[in-house]
Each structure stands twice: as C-alpha cells, then as structure tokens.
Amino acid sequence: MSARIATVFMATGVQGSSVIRALLKDTIFTPRAVTRNANSETARALGCEVVEASYGNKDALKKAVTGAECVFLVTMPFTDLPEMDQGKNVIDACMEAGVKFVALSSLPNVREMSGGKYTHVIHFDEKAEVQKYLEASGIACASICPGSFLENIHRGQLGCPFTKTDTGYELITRERPGSSVIQTWTGHDMGPAVAAVFAQYTTRPAEIDHKMFVLGSRRATAEETAAELAKGLGVPVTVKHLGPMAFPAVDEMYDFSAEYEWFPGVEVPDMRLEALGVKVGTIEEFARTELKEHIGA
C-alpha cells in the first residue's frame, strides 16, 4: 500500500513543525516538509522528507503537493509577495495536483468585522481572503485559527521581553488593558488539530469540511494570563502594558482586539476540536514546561 502523504508548508516554523511532529507521532500520514532551504539545520532535524519551494515559484509548489492527499497551508505576512498570492498559488497547485483536503491556518477579517474602521491589519485580512478562496475552490477543507501565540512570551516579540524581577517575572505586552484575547500554545496544539482533521475528514465530513475551528486554551486578559503563568512558574508574574509602536498593522490589531471579540459565539477551548480528539494545553502547562525551560527557571 502506498503511503498517504501530507505536505506541510512553512515546516520549520512554529505551526508547520508542530504539524510535522504530530504526523510523525500518529503515523497515519507520511509528512513532506516544505521550506525555502532544505539544507538548513532546522530542516534536516525535522525527521522527514524535505523539499524546497517558495510561494512565488509555481512549478516548485506543484511538485511539493503532487502525490499528496492532504496539505497544511500557512502563509507568511509582510513579505514582497502578498499572502493572498501565496495562498492562491498553493491552492491552485493543489487543484491541479488533485489534493483531496487542505487545512489552512487562518484569522478573522478585521476590515469586515470592524465595518471598515480598521484597514491596516493585512496579516489578518489576507489570511481570511485566502480562506474564502480555498472554500470556493472545490477542495474539501477546514480552517484552524490560532489566537495570540503563547510562544511569543519567551520569544520577546514586538519588543516585549519576559523580564526577571526581584520577586518573579514581568509580562510586558502591547495588549490594551482589559482586552480579552484568545491565548494559544500554538506549537503544542496546531499539530494535533491538523492531524485530527486529516485523519477524519473522510469519515466525519459534516463536522470538518468547510468548517472553521478556533485553536486556543481560553480567552484571557493580560492579567489573567499572568496569573496562570505564575501558577506554572511558582513565582509572581506582574504585567506592564506598553503603548502603540507606530506600526499601523500591529497597533490596529490591538485596537481591534480591545473593541471586538475574535470569533464571537465560539467557545474557547473549541468543543468541536475536542470532539475530534484534540485536547489543547493550558497556559499553566505552557509555563510549567516550555516557558520555564526557555527562561532557565
């Protein structure tokens, strides 16, 4: 019997590498990793077939998905090639190659949800447009939507380092005070979520096909997140809110998140994912394991 192949884009990133690990663990699909440099140390450490392709190279994309039954697609913001073009190129290649199912990492359409108030959050809006294109393509599909990456805490994203204090740590954030945001341990949970929809898209199509799932442990303010981090670390965690950073895409993202709920009406954790066998990690678990390791606590 020939192997069931699943092609995974951005395979060395937080999301893609999580999917690779989950596929290798459950052994239903044989992963094929796609990256821009197959000879990088990170790519060689994936433990599976690695192919090179950029989102602008249609021939390379076609080769990357040919023979694959399923594809995991995540696009890269703030590059020379818009995310809509990245996604369209991959989806077109999937249609040509006869791919049966695509799982997409997506986000809300900020422009539409805000009635045109916020127009600069292109790293959300373009993913949402890719989702529309995918859902109209005729390919069976599902979208899995993460919230704020918990990994960004130890990565110090957007000039927000997790800082040691005399008594514990300080969570520095650009989230607006009082804003409740979906918190997602993306590297821990994206892989199992994608593996679950890959494994069950033929047997549970009514629950999976053309559905949008929210990936997250809970909706939480920065203060609530800090309290959970403190439980995992065993020391106090305080919060410091920074102001805007004069980058409209980011500043409007936080303004939007303070004013609008991402995925209104969807319970977090998403019980539909739990019904498919996906159990997401908590903020406390993240702190006790991954965060503690990264900060050397």
Rank of each mutant, 00 (worst) to 15 (best):
E69C: 08
A226M: 14
L104R: 05
A68K: 04
L73W: 04
G234E: 02
E252I: 07
P31G: 09
Q183Y: 06
V250W: 14
I295V: 15
P269F: 01
S180F: 06
F247M: 11
P269H: 05
R204Y: 12
F78I: 03
G67P: 11
G243C: 06
A11V: 05
M1T: 14
E129V: 10
T186I: 15
G47Q: 09
A103Q: 00
L23H: 00
D92S: 04
R4K: 11
V266N: 08
N39E: 02
M190T: 08
F149N: 03
L171P: 00
L273Y: 07
T35I: 14
I295N: 10
S40Q: 11
A22K: 04
A6T: 12
A33F: 15
S2K: 12
G47N: 05
G147I: 09
G13Y: 10
K292D: 03
C141T: 11
T35P: 01
C145T: 01
V65Y: 02
A222P: 00
A33D: 01
Q200A: 12
G156V: 13
R174G: 05
H188K: 06
V280C: 02
E207V: 04
G116L: 06
M253G: 05
R4D: 13
V239Q: 13
M84G: 03
E49L: 10
H294I: 08
L291R: 11
G232F: 03
C48V: 13
K240I: 12
V65N: 00
K62C: 09
T289G: 10
